[in-house]
Design a protein around this nucleic acid. Sequence first.
DNA 1: GATGGCCCTTCCATCAACTGGAAGGTCAAG
DNA 2: CTTGACCTTCCAGTTGATGGAAGGGCCATC
Lengths: 136, 136
Amino acid sequence: MNIGTVAQRAGLPAKTIRYYEEIGLIRPARDTNDYRAFSERDLHKLAFIGRARALGFSIEDCRGLLALYEDESRASADVRRIASEHLARIDAKIAELRAMRGTLSTLVEACAGDERPDCPILSDLAEPSRQSISGT
Amino acid sequence: MNIGTVAQRAGLPAKTIRYYEEIGLIRPARDTNDYRAFSERDLHKLAFIGRARALGFSIEDCRGLLALYEDESRASADVRRIASEHLARIDAKIAELRAMRGTLSTLVEACAGDERPDCPILSDLAEPSRQSISGT
DNA sequence: GATGGCCCTTCCATCAACTGGAAGGTCAAG
DNA sequence: CTTGACCTTCCAGTTGATGGAAGGGCCATC
C-alpha cells in the first residue's frame, strides 16, 4: 500500500503519517523506488494512533499505549494509569476553561457592544479590582 | 524600572516580557547601558496583557484589545466582538474536552487495572466498533 | 517517445507562545 | 578588586503537525 491509500483508510493526512514515521511511531518497509510500502499491520497501528490522538492522548502517550498494545504480557494497570493521568489532565483543562468562561461571559454580558467607548471588558483587563468581576 | 522589577510587579517572567517586546506588544525605552527602561505605562500594559492571557486570549487578540484600550474613540462593539469570538472558541474547546472525557472515563472505569493483559481501553483503540464505547 | 497528470520522495520553513541556556556586559557592596 | 546579582543578545527546543519547493516515478494516451 502506498501512503495515499493508507492516508485515506486511516483517515490521516499523508504528511502526518510521514511525520509519525520520522518520530519513530511506525516503520513502514520501502519499495525499490523508495516509496513507503505499508502493511495492513502498519495501517492498523496508524488507525490506533489516530483514535488515541482523537481522545487527546499526547504522542508520547500514544507511543506508550502502542507498546502496551503490542506487548501480550502487559498489565492492564499500566494502560489504565496512562489513561487516568490523561483524564486528570482533561479535567484540569476543563476546570481552567470553565473558570475563564465564567469571567469572560459575565464581562461580555456587561458590555453594551455599541458605538460608545465605555467597556467593562477593557476596564476589567485594565484594573480588575475596580468595580469588576474577578477571575474564577 | 528594570526588567526584573517589572517582571515581579506584572507577575510575568522577564523572558516573556522580552518576548513581548520582540513581537511588538510593548516598546520600552532603553537606558544608555542598553537596559530596558520601563515606564509605569509599560508596566500597566504588561499587566493588561497578563490578565488577557490569563483569560485565554491569544497574543493577536491581546494586540487588538490593547489597541482598542488605547483608542479613546473605540466602539465597545469591537471589544465585545473579540471577546465573544473567544468565548465561542472556549465553548467549543470545552465541548471537545467533555466528549473526550466521556469516552475516556467510561473506558477507564471498564478497565480492571490489574496485572492481566485484557484491557477495554486498548480494545477500543484497536477496534472501536467491536464491543465498545464509541467517542461522540 | 513525448506529454500530461497524479503520486511519491526529501528537506526546509512556519505556526503559538514561550522557555532554557550560553556567552558576555553592568553595577553595587564589601 | 572581586563577587554576585542583574542585565544583554542570540540560538535552540518544545508540541504536533502543516505548507511548499524541488525533483523522481508511473501510467495512459496521443
